[in-house]
Amino acid sequence: MIKQLLPATLLTLLLTVLLGLAYPLAMTGAAGALFPHQAHGSLIEKDGKVVGSTLIAQGFAKPEYFHPRPSATTDTDPADPTKTVPAPYNAANSGASNAAPTSKSYIEGTQALIEQVKAENPDARVALPIDLVTASASGLDPHISPQAAEYQLPRVAKARAIPEADLRAVVARLTEGRSFGILGEASVNVLKLNLALDGQWPQAK
């Protein structure tokens, strides 16, 4: 027993130091030196203040901004710490709806959401794509599909009083294709797009 316990214990402690301290600290050093922007969360600053991360969705509700995908993230209920309350785009507690495909509340909620999105975009020129009315897996999906961008484009152009063609050119510039033409899906990063809009057509505050 002791003959086995001793190496098991010593090895566990030694490996905890090697793999739990030395390895992550060395990786942090190397990552910070090689890829400092990514290692610190791909943050974007504007006028010296952090406005978000290019990889993390943030809430946009105003008509002059493109809207991200719905988010089902939650936060602790301030009134009762054992319960949670909806808190969309909560980047300190990622998560999905985990709704079942046959859930009554999910189907009814989706119906209501579709009607709301259609009402917000009365001039849409393409069919409503599924990604714009389904909650993402992380609740922080920074992308929408190119079709979802095109769907919202007339609304944004109208709210900013700019020609649709000019706006479409910006969207096209920021549309990312599949990696190497093969991997993943085409997408548009909502935060980068909205920052580009504010840069090109500044809004009166």
Partner: peptide
């Protein structure tokens, strides 16, 4: 059931389509 509500679930080079609840666009 979601498709029956008039949502486009076709996959193309411009949209992932299908069942996107709990999935990521990229």
């Amino acid at each position: 059931l979601v498709q029956a509500m008039g949502v486009d679930v076709a996959s193309s080079d411009l949209a992932p389509g299908g069942n996107m609840e709990g999935k990521e666009v990229r």
